[in-house]
Write a protein that binds this DNA or RNA. Structure first.
Lengths: 159, 159
DNA sequence: CCCGAATCGTTACACTTGCAAACATCGGGT
DNA sequence: ACCCGATGTTTGCAAGTGTAACGATTCGGG
């Protein structure tokens, strides 16, 4: 009497789980650095990083760049503005839209954090062989686009 | 007058950022499935998955297996117990320790979710070439162990 | 010109999460 | 037997996050 092949997950081998563990490890390592020293959370850091290279973006554009929720951007911007690290003004042609720029203080924070972040990334990648770094790049790209595809259309299970 | 090479991060190329985006995408895809249908959150799901293969673990052991916070495990277990999906008893030899087992209802939930999760993983990995899947495995392992190493000893930047 | 739909950003609320402290129990040394 | 530190788990509180609802503004069709 054999039937119903048992489907069993070993968490250690399950890709989503392993990704999650790795990401948490990496994120909290970096976050820890600038959280304590500069009082920046991850969302704030992302906003700063994007604005450093793209001054004058609107909140919605920042959200698109960083793949953050609009609400998350709004709150991050509020905190940054309160800390004097961002200047927030209103677009002259469309008064709904905001125009966001780093203040000198914001740029200073960026210039101090960016090297730390890049250094951490470099040290992390040191454990990989040369070829692997490149492969990792393309794999992440493929997986991300695949995950997006699966999310938009077929979440279904044959319904 | 050249000086102070500008260190600038392009978020799109920054590994921690890309990992985070990918992980969130994947996690919420799977979570969405069982969140709605079974009212299970990610922590609960992890606990169930571990207990399905290792009945009788204590909360601390579950935490170790899943790399979750002890508090997170405690709360997940409480919710699962309240939903009748876990039986929680006290270890006879050490009354601090708990002994956790899935109830029949818990096992039933597991048997329904596990195939969904594995199917998603399979569909996700379909976008990779044969060799890439293997490489990804070793890369994740390397990065995770490296991140652990960096976290435990050298968070410092030469202080 | 005006109304309704769409867009941008913020606010409100409920919920999850992490950290520190508390509580209970155990084990070893005296 | 007793105390003290270590271990397992829970609780309280404060901070963060997502979803839905909101006010403000713009745009397009009638």
């Amino acid at each position: 009497m054999k039937h119903s092949a048992v489907t069993s997950i070993e968490l250690e081998r399950f890709l989503p789980y392993r990704l999650s563990v790795l990401t948490n490890l990496v994120s909290s390592a970096i976050a820890g650095e600038y959280q304590q020293r500069f009082g920046l959370g991850i969302p704030e850091w992302r906003v700063v990083a994007v604005l450093a290279r793209n001054p004058g973006l609107s909140a919605a554009e920042v959200a698109a760049y960083t793949r953050m929720d609009a609400v998350a951007v709004s709150r991050a911007v509020t905190r940054l503005a309160r800390a004097g690290r961002i200047r927030r003004s209103v677009a002259p042609d469309d008064r709904r839209r905001s125009v966001l720029r780093l203040s000198p203080a914001g740029r200073a924070v960026y210039r101090r954090i960016a090297p730390l972040a890049l250094r951490y990334e470099r040290e992390l990648l040191e454990c990989l062989a040369d070829g692997e770094t490149v492969v990792l790049d393309t794999i992440i790209a493929k997986l991300t686009s695949r995950a997006n595809a699966l999310a938009t259309d077929g979440l279904d299970d044959g319904r």
